[in-house]
Design a protein around this nucleic acid. Structure first.
Lengths: 345, 345
DNA sequence: GCACGCGATGAGAGCGCTCCCCGACCGACG
DNA sequence: CGTCGGTCGGGGAGCGCTCTCATCGCGTGC
């Protein structure tokens, strides 16, 4: 067939259409300012030759790449393997595709990788970056911020001052937590406990804050630290039952934690939701729907988060005439959450 | 700081090091044939200037991109959101990173996207492609095969003839299934059933074949079609219990299916594994470890699959002197599976 | 009917890099 | 000490494209 025989160039298209390279270029790039008959001729030539622009040559002169890096920091098996990132990637991918941008995926684990990512971004291979970094002490966000690449963060970045200027998209962790806890209170529960997530992540901190917004610091014994895993949920639940046997409701930092808690509750003969009501967070379907009983939880629209991140970045890239948007910028966009009532609360 | 002020070029590095552009280039690309003192001078200049090669300019002349596309076809929520792809991506990413290649992620759903992907790959933006396509009738593999881009498939592609020549990496679905079923037989079970996966996917077909390898076609009533979902597993299990109440073992096509089956079994008062032994497939941790009882299952090393795919592709790219490896090539590489014994069988 | 103006087209200069090829320089041998 | 062979460094072309600028042709207004 069409062997690897070097692909046709703009020059070839122009020749076949009987126009100059410049005109052919104009048509390929939208065709403004070229009269209809010529446009038609060029289009046909492109078709017949199977012409595809050489992106490298184009980038060389435009300094644009139509590519965005997605950086996912430290994909420990547990974290990365949950459907979270898959959904975000879907959302991001859809939005980027709609704008003819490519998605360059950068997965990192560990310091060496950080340096590599930093170099890559600073190297100007992509127009911008979407960064997921879960840990408060992760140096990556700062590093990237310093690289001078337009960036949008997924989830509120945890670093002090700079965070204020960073653009990010996050779920309303605090508000969602409040809603969950209020729901429990509305059910008439008085001994409401919270199993936190890994507190080195902003989402865990924010959910804890939401819990406290409603419950205050009344009984510190009702807050137990978890780590977003089922095992952590089990451990925390055991501790909780020991410390406060009269607990009648648990708000778990995520669904996985809740599933662990549920197991302990069942094992100890506590009925859910009769004796103890349980609420999770995430609405991670394979988990939330499969627990026994099905889990009431706070849903966040993960895919939409991804889409929004991409949209924000693309918008920023679009109006990159001057320097940084000096308009004091919209630091963060926070997406609403919704309480999904199933059986457990 | 270092404003966006155009990044330093090779020219600048050469000037600072007091050598020619060509020499600087040689050093940047390995430094063969340049004497030590000069190498050192250039290296320092690179360092001081913070020089990063312009990939576009380089690609323009070398026709290499150091980038590989990963195509994931039809990421329906369910499919894409399971940890499967995340793990494969990890494996792929690690291998690519080790070879200084970038990972361009292409997610598709539907026909339009296919065309887009085809165009992108044919456009020569990447050196090769890693393709995941789950459905037997998916036109994508053929389309890509036709695009003339070096490709490795994830999972045995389902299309007729061409498949024979395609390079792919797969788990030993058939062998794993055999092992699972033999284990059940070894437990003394005589009425062993199989809940299949979605039979438009090669993995489901292969697992069914493995089941038949051991059980023959003895009792066709013991094979029920599922769809890889928990709901499908429930439905199939109900049908099975109705049709063959004396069933004493179930080999489910994957863990999700098994979790659905387990639920029905529990609901019907059948004890697992005492009355009915159950085995899944995948060893998808969040599921297999959380079922009640914990699931015995067939583990496949997903991350390794990804890594292997990347390695195969890179190797192929490396020796791309002539045309396709005319050595009749190693069509497929099949990774072994292992039976993980937990409680359910 | 003629001059002016504006929009459409073509020519050409690079973008930053690699790589070919020639010139120069070094050491060694006669 | 002269000359020849081998090796290393520099000059230059050109990858395919975009974009500026000059040119051309047409329409319009007086």
């Amino acid at each position: 067939m069409t062997e690897t025989a070097s692909r046709p160039t703009l020059e070839a298209v122009a020749a076949r259409a009987g126009v100059s390279r410049a005109t052919a270029s104009r048509v390929v790039n939208g065709g403004d300012g070229v009269r209809e008959p010529l446009v038609e001729r060029v289009r046909r030539a492109v078709e017949e030759l199977g012409y595809v622009p050489n992106q490298a040559a184009r980038s060389l002169v435009t300094r644009r790449h139509d590519a965005v890096a997605v950086v996912i920091a430290e994909p420990e098996t547990r974290v990365f393997a949950d459907p979270f990132f898959a959904l975000q990637l879907r959302g991001i991918s859809k939005e980027l595709t709609a704008h003819d941008s490519q998605l360059v995926l950068l997965l990192t684990e560990g310091r060496d990788d950080h340096a590599r990512v930093g170099r890559y971004l600073a190297g100007g291979h992509v127009d911008g970056a979407l960064v997921f970094s879960l840990h408060l002490d992760d140096p990556l966000p700062q590093l990237i911020h310093g690289a001078g690449v337009p960036t949008v963060f997924g989830g509120r970045p945890g670093w002090g001052d700079g965070a204020r200027r960073a653009v990010y998209v996050d779920s309303d962790n605090r508000g969602g937590a409040r809603e969950a806890v209020r729901h429990l209170v509305g059910l008439g529960r008085t001994r409401v406990a919270h199993i936190t997530g890994a507190l080195d992540q902003t989402s865990a901190v924010d959910r804890l804050d939401g819990f406290r917004d409603v419950m205050g610091d009344a009984d510190p014994g009702l807050v137990v630290e978890g780590d977003f895993t089922p095992a952590g949920g089990e451990r925390a639940m055991r501790e909780l039952l020991e410390r406060c046997p009269d607990v009648d409701a648990v708000f778990a930092a995520n669904d996985l934690t809740a599933s662990g808690a549920l197991r302990v509750l069942r094992e100890r003969g506590r009925r859910v939701p009769d004796d103890v009501a349980v609420i999770g967070f995430d609405d991670m379907l394979p988990v939330a729907e499969q627990t026994d009983p099905p889990l009431t939880t706070v849903r966040q629209d993960i895919e939409e988060m991804g889409r929004l991140m991409a949209r924000l970045l693309l918008r920023d890239l679009g109006r990159r005439t001057g320097k940084q948007g000096a308009d004091g910028g919209p630091a963060g966009v926070v997406l609403p959450t919704t309480l999904v009532r199933r059986v457990s609360a």
